[in-house]
Computed example of a mutant assay.
Amino acid sequence: MRANKVPVPSPSFWIVKVLTTGFGEALSDFLVKRFDPVPTVLVTAVVFAVVLGVQIRARRYAPWRYWAAVVLVAVFGTMVADAAHVAVGVPYWVSTLVFAVALVAVFVGWRRTAGSLDVHGIDTLRREVWYWCAVVVTFALGTAVGDLAASVAGAGFLVGGLLFLAGIAVVVALRGLRVLGPVAAFWSAYVLTRPLGASFADWVAVDPARGGLGAGTGLVSAVLGLAIVGFVAVLPDEHRRRYAEEPEPAGP
């Protein structure tokens, strides 16, 4: 049995989560437009695999290690979802449907083989592998949903971001009314934070001709990256307080 290696979903958790989604969107766009997309995606995939492998092999939660893995998921997940549309020509609604089905498959497999989907119980290797599979698919699904809303539905980046913010507010309200359970509410919000952060990042970054402020993906990436570093450095240690009674895990 391992110690739980997923942080408590506190307000600070959700703030950093949204920052990583915007950062992943902006940095992905910045990299693939300034470098050859194929080697860029391959290098990102290798870095992602290494960082995620370090996170999974670790015996305890560490904020920097965990959020580094989430950041790489955000960047690589965005590249995969964008490549499906730009390089392969898959329509946004098709990729949205495919990733939605994939997420359901992950949840079903996780539930049948490793028990509860509650993130307070990621305390075995099997559960942690399923958890990260779910995280990767939620980022890809959120990217496809955000692109679908902004491009096909014609909502635009700002309006799309506000719509996803409203969607999260609905999830919170349903949780408060106990219509949604804690696990369903968590994963619903987790999916919606991806297009929320990406929509606002795109709105700030893209040219005014596309409905944005024109700050550029490089500047947005830098600002959001610094914000993530700052927040992770000063995060209150809810995780340590929440799991303070857990025994030290055995050696490897």
Results as ranks from 00 to 15, higher is better:
117 L>G: 02
130 W>Q: 02
24 G>C: 04
241 R>A: 15
80 V>S: 01
224 L>S: 08
243 Y>D: 05
158 L>G: 02
66 Y>E: 02
51 V>T: 03
61 Y>H: 06
29 D>F: 04
81 A>Q: 03
199 S>A: 14
221 S>H: 08
8 V>C: 09
192 L>P: 02
40 T>K: 10
158 L>M: 10
54 V>A: 15
73 V>L: 13
93 W>N: 10
128 E>M: 01
136 V>T: 02
217 T>K: 07
157 F>W: 15
235 L>A: 14
47 V>S: 00
98 V>I: 02
33 K>I: 08
48 F>Y: 15
93 W>F: 12
55 Q>P: 06
21 T>Y: 04
172 V>M: 15
189 A>L: 08
165 L>P: 02
127 R>Y: 04
229 V>Y: 07
226 L>V: 15
153 A>T: 00
76 F>D: 03
196 L>N: 07
193 T>C: 05
43 V>E: 11
157 F>N: 14
59 R>L: 10
93 W>E: 15
58 A>L: 02
251 G>H: 13
214 G>W: 03
188 S>G: 11
45 A>K: 08
111 R>E: 12
47 V>F: 14
225 G>E: 09
158 L>Q: 13
27 L>A: 14
84 A>Y: 03
68 A>G: 06
214 G>L: 10
58 A>S: 15
210 R>F: 12
91 P>N: 03
175 R>H: 13
145 V>P: 01
70 V>P: 03
7 P>E: 09
37 P>G: 11
127 R>C: 07
5 K>L: 11
113 T>E: 13
95 S>R: 07
171 V>L: 05
147 D>K: 12
211 G>Y: 00
97 L>V: 07
219 L>T: 15
10 S>I: 03
238 E>K: 14
31 L>C: 12
150 A>W: 08
18 V>Q: 03
243 Y>R: 07
55 Q>R: 13
83 A>P: 02
171 V>P: 03
55 Q>W: 06
183 V>W: 03
142 G>W: 03
247 P>M: 00
226 L>N: 01
93 W>P: 05
164 F>A: 00
33 K>Y: 14
142 G>M: 00
141 L>S: 02
167 G>S: 12
105 A>F: 10
188 S>V: 09
160 G>M: 01
129 V>R: 00
178 R>G: 10
221 S>P: 11
35 F>H: 09
233 A>K: 07
120 H>R: 14
159 V>H: 06
12 S>W: 09
28 S>K: 10
189 A>P: 07
83 A>V: 01
139 F>M: 12
123 D>R: 12
176 G>A: 13
219 L>K: 05
41 V>H: 04
87 A>P: 00
19 L>T: 01
181 G>P: 11
135 V>Q: 06
144 A>E: 02
158 L>A: 07
136 V>Y: 11
24 G>I: 09
15 I>V: 15
241 R>H: 13
45 A>G: 15
71 V>C: 10
61 Y>F: 07
200 F>C: 00
23 F>H: 07
208 P>F: 10
89 G>V: 01
94 V>L: 06
57 R>H: 13
145 V>G: 13
171 V>Q: 04
215 A>G: 11
143 T>F: 06
68 A>N: 11
21 T>N: 00
180 L>Q: 09
244 A>F: 03
164 F>T: 05
229 V>T: 01
239 H>A: 01
198 A>I: 09
108 V>W: 05
166 A>Y: 09
225 G>H: 11
103 L>C: 02
4 N>I: 01
244 A>N: 08
76 F>R: 13
171 V>H: 01
25 E>C: 05
55 Q>D: 14
